[in-house]
Every structure is written in C-alpha cells, then in structure tokens.
Design a protein around this nucleic acid. Structure first.
Lengths: 163, 163
DNA sequence: AAAATTGAGGACCTAGAGATCCAGAAAGTG
DNA sequence: CACTTTCTGGATCTCTAGGTCCTCAATTTT
C-alpha cells in the first residue's frame, strides 16, 4: 500500500545507474551488480524500457543499454506509467466499481486530491534528481544505497584487452 | 499503487454499514447486499475483524455481527493496520532491502514525510465520518455509492414472523 | 430433542507480480 | 566465416491477494 510497484522502483534504479555513467553502452549484468535488482528480472525490465522508448539497446559484443534522452528529461511519473498500470487507471480506495468524480465513494473527496498531489510530485521529480541525491554507480556493487562516495560503472570490460 | 488494499476498503465498507444500522445483529449476507463486497470474501473479512476485536459475532439463529465500539472511535488507520501488513512494515519505494532513515535510498527523504502525512490523515479519519459522507445502508443494495438517500439495513428478517 | 439458522474455519481455486531459465538472433572480433 | 558476446523473448516457476466452497459447531426456535 502507498507505494510504487517493486518493478517501477527497479526501473528507476536502473535508469539512475545509466544516468550516472555516461553515454557508453552498459551491460545488463553491470547494471544489476550496481543495484538491488536480480539480473534476470532486470533484463526483462530493461527490455520493457526499450519498448517504451526510454532506453536503447544494442546486441552482441560490446553491446548493452543506454539512455535515449538525458536523465533530466525523464520524470519518475513517466517511468511509473510505463510499468505500473494502476497509475494510469487508479482503483477506488474502497474498491467500489463505479466510483468516480460524479458518483464518489465516501473517501473519494479525501483521496482524489492526495492522489493528484503525489502524482504531480512524481511528475516533477526526475531520474537525474534521484541520482544526485546519492546512489550507487554501476559496477561497484554498493547495493544501491547511499553509502560512502558514489562508485562508477564497472570497467571490468577493459580487462578483456579490447582495442 | 497509492492505495489501500482492496480488502481494507471492503472492511471499511462493512464497518460503515454496521455503524449506520444500530446495535442489532446484522447478517453477513445483508452486509454483503449493501456493499460491493462478494459474500464469501466478506465472511472471511468479518472473521478477521472479529479476531482483531473490531466486531463481535454471534452464531446461530438470529445471530450476526455488530460493532464492538462506536464508529467514532474506529480510525481508518486502525482498520488498515489489521488487514494490510504493508502499512505496518512499509517497503522502500525503490525496493532497496536495507533502506531506512540511517541508510536512505534516494527517494526516501521525499517519500517518508509523504507516507507519514497520509498515515496521519488515515489516523484522524474515522469510520463514522466515512459513513456520514454518504454511503449505502445494509440491505438496500445501492452498491455502496452515495446515490439518492441513505438506505437502511435489510429488515427481511421481520418477515420471518419472529418474536 | 430435533430442526433451522448462521458464523467458524479450513481447503481450494485464480490471476497477476515478481523472478528464473534458456534457446535463438544480432552484432562485433579475429 | 567461425566464434564470442549480449540482448530477445517466450516458457515456466513461485508467492500472495482476492475469491469460492464446503463441512462443522454454536445458538435459537419449536
């Protein structure tokens, strides 16, 4: 209750990781290491984010994911709307099927303004802000929490002697 | 997202119906008819409400349910806490396992005050207020919405020529 | 005491979210 | 071209909320 879905949270984390770490392609695996998101599930989420046009994907050697637009232009609401169907079609707080502005349940007049206010908040906040408030960098496995300084994306790939 | 569980909404409806309709025993069936809650599930919820001490139950002929204390003394928060485990142990908005005031995720400082504010609201609102803002009376099948005037509990039982 | 009524409470079903796994396709490397 | 890497996308598993069903036990009526 009173929260975004787990999946949306995961997506915000993933986008945050990408935002912090430049224009390069980043592997799903590295993003997973940087966040609290299990890899297989993250892959699925990244896939969805690509379909809705928030990230770009490249397959094959030295492929990965990157943001399509700057993190300053991605609102949290936008992310939530892509992944959380209930955000688009909110349920009546009491579960009435026919609840609406015209035929309101007894909590509607309390709840509807609250809901709008929170959505507006989410519409104002961007992925960039979330990043700035201190999270983990891809590839440093800090579990995504704001501890110590901010690590960066895994450069493990350089060890593979490319170029 | 951003709502109480369906079950909590159902419970508030049921308590509201009981509140509106006096001290007598009311059948689960009549309460179901008055609300948008499917009978078998309502029975389960009423059972839980009895276990946590919000309603009293009586079995057998002319049994039913009634409130243990006046609706003015039942806060919505109280109801939610009985039925919605996530209210007691809120999840991190981003899904971090270790998120807390000390080790906060990047949305924690935005979300925590919002959450507290909403919980405080719910703590202030009572079942009595929800009733007063216009809902359906038990036994008149108005689907629980604030249409027309407020119907009362089914008196179908009187047809059975008791007394 | 027998019959009728009604909640108690456990077994069970269903859908969706969260999560995992794997064969296959695309892309770069040598 | 063969090989490796990495995303693709569908099948599948698990867990929980929501919901149904059925038998048992308690209580009142007659």
């Amino acid at each position: 209750m009173l929260s975004l879905s787990q999946t949306t949270g995961y997506a915000i984390q993933a986008l945050g990781c990408l935002a912090r770490c430049g224009e390069e392609w980043h592997l799903a695996k590295d993003i997973a290491d940087c966040s609290d998101v299990p890899l297989p599930y993250l892959q699925k989420i990244l896939h969805t984010l690509r379909v809705v046009g928030l990230v770009e994907a490249k397959r094959g050697y030295r492929g990965g994911f990157k943001l399509v637009k700057p993190a300053e232009e991605i609102s949290l609401l936008e992310v939530a709307q892509c992944l959380d169907p209930e955000i688009r079609e909110p349920r009546c707080l009491l579960g009435f099927r026919a609840c609406s502005d015209e035929s309101a349940c007894s909590m509607h007049h309390f709840w509807e303004p609250e809901r709008r206010r929170l959505l507006a908040e989410l519409g104002r906040m961007t992925v960039a802000e979330v990043v700035d408030s201190g999270a983990t960098m891809i590839g440093h496995g800090e579990s995504g929490l704001a501890r110590e300084n901010q690590p960066r994306i895994a450069e493990g790939r350089t060890e593979r002697a490319h170029t």
